[in-house]
């Protein structure tokens, strides 16, 4: 913990001297380097082995570049069956999670009664529950009704907690929603359906997209919950786990490379989008502040002495 602050601190306290500052800088950099090496080296080794000749996963010595293991992987019928299952489950989870997540967010944003905290607690609890418990409880519950494990139960078990992620995304978005828009539309004679389709939904659309992507990725990568609920079926992640466990051929490394490429692309795209949204948000706040200031100034000019108190109370949108 020392290195992180001491960096700035040395600047402030000349008593430490220049050498102390340099030392701190070196310590910080060394720590960062170590940490990021720790994060990336194992992944790198795994990736390298996917392109290595030998018949078992091995990174060093590198005996020759090959794409053979990707060919093997693509020729593996089991993998394709698993991919299809993963896609089916993913789509099912997206539909359920967005539906439930949105209903939860609308309820909690609007609800003001004492029960709100309890409902909120129950709805986010799946995020704090180990994945295997969600899988087991879904399996036990549906087995009582005569439904055995399979794709259907996998969808339900995953949706239990992925809905909560979606709900939190929707709630964050709805917090920024100006309810006066809905009220104005209702006052002007719009029907509830019109208000929803023309005002609420367009406002939520970017979040629906984000939530859907997130839900799909969460579903695609899920192992702990799925492994209990899936019964005799398999998904790509389960296939990956069993291949990783046995690690007989570098096919598993080839599959790992594909997973990594997909995630990296998705993560970077997601991050870029998030930053753009944040910048947009800040820009709007700035604009609102400016407009507020201008309005206050013009009021000051016209009303003279009384304008100050009016401007101070902030007519128009409040700066966030």
């Amino acid at each position: 913990m020392a290195e992180a602050t001491a960096n700035g601190q040395a600047r402030q306290r000349p008593t430490g001297g220049v050498s102390a500052e340099t030392l701190t800088r070196w310590t910080v950099n060394a720590y960062l380097l170590l940490f990021f090496a720790y994060m990336f080296l194992p992944l790198l080794i795994m990736v390298v082995a996917a392109f290595n000749e030998p018949g078992i996963p091995q990174a060093i010595p590198f005996e020759g570049l090959t794409f053979h293991w990707f060919e093997e992987l693509f020729g593996n019928a089991k993998i394709w069956a698993a991919v299809v299952n993963s896609l089916i489950i993913g789509v099912g989870v997206v539909v359920l999670a967005v539906t439930f997540g949105l209903s939860g967010a609308l309820l909690l944003t609007r609800l003001q009664t004492r029960g709100r905290t309890l409902i909120y607690g129950v709805l986010v609890s799946p995020l704090l529950t180990p994945g295997i418990i969600l899988g087991i409880s879904t399996l036990v519950f549906w087995n009582n009704l005569g439904v055995p494990g399979g794709l259907f139960l996998a969808v339900l078990a995953q949706a239990t907690f992925i809905s909560a992620y979606c709900m939190l995304l929707f709630m964050a978005r709805l917090q920024r929603f100006d309810r006066a828009l809905e009220e104005a539309a209702l006052d002007l004679g719009a029907s509830h359906q019109q208000v929803f389709w023309k005002i609420t939904l367009p406002f939520l659309r970017p979040t629906i997209f984000t939530a859907a992507v997130l839900a799909f990725l969460q579903s695609f990568e899920n192992f702990n919950t799925t492994v209990f609920a899936i019964g005799g079926e398999t998904t790509l992640t389960i296939q990956l786990a069993s291949m990783a466990r046995l690690s007989l051929t570098p096919e598993v490394n080839a599959l790992a490379v594909i997973f990594i490429v997909i995630t990296v692309v998705a993560a970077v795209a997601f991050e870029i989008k998030r930053r753009a949204e944040k910048a947009e948000q800040e820009r709007r706040i700035e604009a609102a502040k400016r407009a507020d200031a201008e309005m206050a100034a013009s009021l000051d000019a016209t009303l003279g002495g009384t304008g100050e108190s009016l401007g101070g109370r902030g007519l128009g949108p409040q700066p966030a």
Binding site: P42, L240, A244, F259, T263, A266, A267, V268
Partner: peptide, 25 residues
């Protein structure tokens, strides 16, 4: 650095575990 954290954060736990299997086997 944030991007450097976000990328591995998104990578499946099975892959992260398998990476260590390749180190420790």
């Amino acid at each position: 650095l944030m991007l450097g954290l976000i990328v591995p954060y998104w990578i499946n736990e099975i892959l992260r575990t398998f990476a260590w299997l390749m180190l420790l086997s």
